[in-house]
Amino acid sequence: MPGRRRPLIVAAPDSFKGSCSAAIAAQAMLEGARSVFGDDADYLALPLADGGEGTLDAMLAAWGQEPRQVQTTDALGRPRRARYGLSRDRGTAIIEAAEANGLPWVADQPLQPLDADTAGVGTIALAALADGADALLLCIGGSATSDGGVGLLTALGARFLDAQGAQVRPGARGLADVVRIDVDGLDARARDAGWRIAVDVDNPLCGPRGAAAVFGPQKGADAAAIAVIDAGLLHLAEVLAQTVGIDPGALLRRPGLGGAGGMALAAVALLGAETVAGSDLVGEAIGVRSAMLGASLVLTGEGQLDSQSLGGKVVDLVRREAPTGTPIVVIAGTVRLSAAECREAGITAAFSIADGPATLDELVADAPRRIAETAAHGCALLTAALRER
Rank of each mutant, 00 (worst) to 15 (best):
M292E: 04
S87A: 13
T383C: 09
L363A: 04
G141F: 02
G194H: 12
L44E: 06
A225Y: 11
A119R: 11
A128Q: 08
A163W: 03
W63M: 04
A349H: 12
R5E: 13
D14S: 10
D280V: 13
A260K: 14
R369H: 15
G303L: 10
V239E: 11
G85I: 09
G149P: 04
L30T: 12
G32T: 12
R180G: 10
L240W: 09
L281C: 06
R389V: 14
I246R: 15
T92G: 04
R369K: 13
Q65H: 00
A28H: 13
G245I: 11
G303K: 03
L386H: 07
N203A: 14
P13M: 02
L299C: 01
A127S: 15
D306F: 10
P7R: 07
A266G: 04
S19E: 11
T326I: 01
E284V: 12
D202N: 15
R336N: 13
D306N: 14
A367E: 08
G259F: 01
Q27P: 10
H377D: 14
V199D: 07
L293S: 15
Q71V: 14
G259E: 09
A49E: 00
W63E: 10
G216K: 08
A213M: 10
P204E: 07
L126G: 01
Q304W: 02
F160T: 11
L152M: 07
E373Y: 13
D222R: 02
D40M: 09
G220Q: 03
Q164S: 14
L46K: 01
V179F: 05
Q65W: 00
D40I: 10
C342M: 12
A190I: 08
M29D: 05
S21T: 15
A237Y: 08
S279H: 00
S87D: 06
G249I: 05
A12T: 05
L271E: 07
A345S: 11
A26S: 11
G311E: 15
R180K: 15
I229D: 01
A332Y: 07
L46A: 04
V168A: 12
I353N: 05
R68F: 06
T326H: 04
A376F: 03
A12L: 03
P217Y: 13
R88F: 03
F160A: 05
C379Q: 05
M59P: 00
R34D: 13
V10Y: 02
A61E: 08
A250I: 12
A358M: 06
G157S: 06
G132Y: 09
R253Q: 14
G325Q: 10
V364N: 07
A82M: 05
L86F: 07
A285Q: 10
L60R: 02
E341Q: 15
V168L: 12
D57Y: 00
D184R: 15
A28W: 14
V150E: 07
A339Q: 14
R169Q: 13
I331W: 00
A75Y: 13
Y43R: 11
D187F: 12
A97M: 15
A224Q: 14
E274F: 11
Y84D: 07
G77T: 06
A340Q: 15
G85R: 03
R387H: 13
M263K: 03
L386Y: 09
R320A: 06
R169D: 09
A266E: 09
T72G: 01
S290F: 09
R196K: 14
A237P: 08
A349Q: 12
D247H: 06
